[in-house]
């Protein structure tokens, strides 16, 4: 079944790192924003998501706390990591696979030889997105497509992926530079 198949693929992923290209489309499919950068994700709900273009923005989680740092704005928002996968898609790869089955209803959307796309619908209440499609090429994730309630789509393509090796643990922590406005959010 799709659920077991996806979970077994996630089970094999202890960590992954590489580059991403992200595109945001409005519900009419009009191209709105493009971004690219590099990322690391590791089991234990840890991620490092550094967007370089068009804006520098850094999202870091050490498994308990999430920092979202905007260099141009000289501002960092600090909040507890929401265990709710519906709020933090990066946790699809960094969370415990069993949690994924709990957080989403999973179905198979398409299959062409080794290229399989799973459709995940969050079960939690008012998630950030209504639907998450994740595509695997064999055992390696290749892209994600998220759609929110307004029909806005965010497509993330992964490139130059390294799986289960070469992770720099120091990146899963963030210390705001001098003069950064720190905004503490409860949840």
């Amino acid at each position: 079944a799709p659920t077991d198949e996806l979970l077994s693929k996630l089970q094999k992923l202890e960590s992954m790192k590489g580059e991403f290209e992200q595109m945001v489309l409005d519900q009419g499919g009009t191209h709105m924003q493009e971004a690219e950068g590099e990322f690391q994700v590791a089991r234990g709900n840890r991620f490092y998501w550094s967007t370089e273009m068009p804006f520098e923005q850094l999202a870091v989680s050490d498994g308990n706390t999430v920092w979202v740092y905007d260099q141009d704005l000289e501002q960092v928002v600090v909040r507890p990591l929401s265990q709710d996968l519906g709020q933090t898609p990066a946790l699809l790869f960094g969370g415990k696979p069993a949690d994924v089955a709990e957080a989403f209803t999973i179905s198979e959307r398409s299959r062409e030889a080794e290229r399989i796309t799973y459709r995940l619908k969050p079960k939690g209440k008012d998630p950030l997105f209504d639907q998450l499609d994740v595509t695997f090429q064999g055992d390696q994730p290749s892209s994600m497509r998220l759609q929110d309630a307004l029909g806005q789509q965010t497509v993330i393509d992964f490139r130059d992926l390294t799986v289960n090796s070469g992770i720099d643990d120091s990146l899963f922590n963030f210390v705001p530079p001098e003069g950064t406005d720190v905004i503490q959010q409860q949840q």
């Binding site: 945001v24 709105m32 999202a59 704005l73 929110d148 806005q152 965010t154 905004i183």
Partner: peptide, 30 residues
């Protein structure tokens, strides 16, 4: 409290629209 959002603003003399989307592109508002 606080936060950040990216925006796309289109303006005409008597009509305007700003579309906001949150960090990582989610949490959009029109």
């Amino acid at each position: 409290d606080g936060g950040s959002a990216s925006f796309d603003w289109t303006q005409k003399p008597n009509r305007g629209q700003i579309r906001f989307s949150g960090p990582l592109g989610f949490g959009s508002a029109d």
